[in-house]
């Protein structure tokens, strides 16, 4: 297994407010994301999931601690390098798709490349391969309003992967999908991870979705609480799901109950 560390989250804390109004959202989280990993982060509501994701995607600055992408501190990015980080180094996949609904699927997908000066002609090759992987070749010239939810999310996924980012952040990507479409999407993400060596970090509270990951971090009250690794050779998603459910069941009892 490749052990190159793409993303290093080093002891980050995030405190909102001042004085007596202080709220601690993250209290010293550290973890690494390895290359070609499908990392799941599971957490309950209010456990700091959004804050963590916002810190990684540069929407928020952590109060203390560092986040390194390939060894570079992302908090030092400004102006062009920040835009480059957002557009080229990181891809996003969100629950509500966030497609621009006045652009066709094709235009939406190649938008990150256009923004970085790649002409549409040159983007075509990467686009057709991704569209095939994600099974959206037929809808490329449609507008989002003419597509199903699953097609929209797979289009959003193609947009996240088009610029070949170092890492793709997925925030509850199946949250707005029915179970069949959720299954199709996770299967595609998992295939991209295995066959195309894409690194994905997915935040979810759905154990079913998490069972497609290769490693899962459980976060509660701003700290990492537990970690599960999938035995990639022998373990099926169903078996991994059983283990995840056990952890979730024990989460309610606090750390003392976790094996």
């Amino acid at each position: 297994m490749n052990t190159n560390r793409i993303l290093q989250v080093q002891n980050i804390t995030k405190i909102y407010g001042k004085g007596v109004n202080q709220t601690t959202a993250l209290s010293g989280i550290s973890f690494d994301v390895l290359e070609v990993e499908f990392l799941g982060i599971m957490c309950g509501s209010g456990s700091g999931k959004t804050t963590l994701l916002n810190c990684i995607s540069t929407m928020l600055k952590p109060t203390t601690g560092k986040i390194l992408l390939n060894g570079d501190d992302i908090s030092s990015f400004k102006g062009k390098s920040l835009a480059n980080y957002r557009g080229n180094k990181i891809g996003y996949l969100y629950q509500s798709f966030e497609l621009l609904d006045n652009l066709t699927a094709r235009e939406n997908i190649i938008l990150p490349l256009s923004l970085h000066g790649v002409s549409n002609q040159n983007a075509e090759k990467a686009l057709s391969s991704l569209a095939m992987h994600l099974d959206i070749t037929d809808v490329l010239d449609k507008f989002p309003s003419q597509m199903s939810g699953g097609q929209k999310q797979r289009t959003a996924a193609a947009r996240a992967f088009i610029s070949d980012p170092d890492i793709v952040l997925a925030d509850e990507p199946t949250g707005a999908l029915d179970s069949k479409n959720a299954w199709v999407l996770l299967d595609k993400l998992s295939t991209l991870n295995r066959e195309e060596n894409k690194t994905i970090v997915m935040v979810t509270h759905d154990a079913n979705a998490a069972s497609y990951c290769s490693r899962i971090l459980f976060i509660q009250d701003g700290t990492i609480f537990h970690e599960l690794r999938k035995n990639t050779k022998n373990e099926t998603p169903a078996m991994f799901y059983e283990r995840i459910m056990t952890v979730i069941a024990q989460l309610g009892g606090g750390s003392a109950n976790v094996l």
Binding site: E107, L115, N120
Partner: peptide
């Protein structure tokens, strides 16, 4: 024209069209 254009050309055009 979009094939050869980069940046926000398509977006700007689509905004006007919309």
């Amino acid at each position: 024209h979009k094939a050869k254009k980069t940046g926000l050309y398509t977006f700007t055009g689509r905004q006007i069209q919309e």
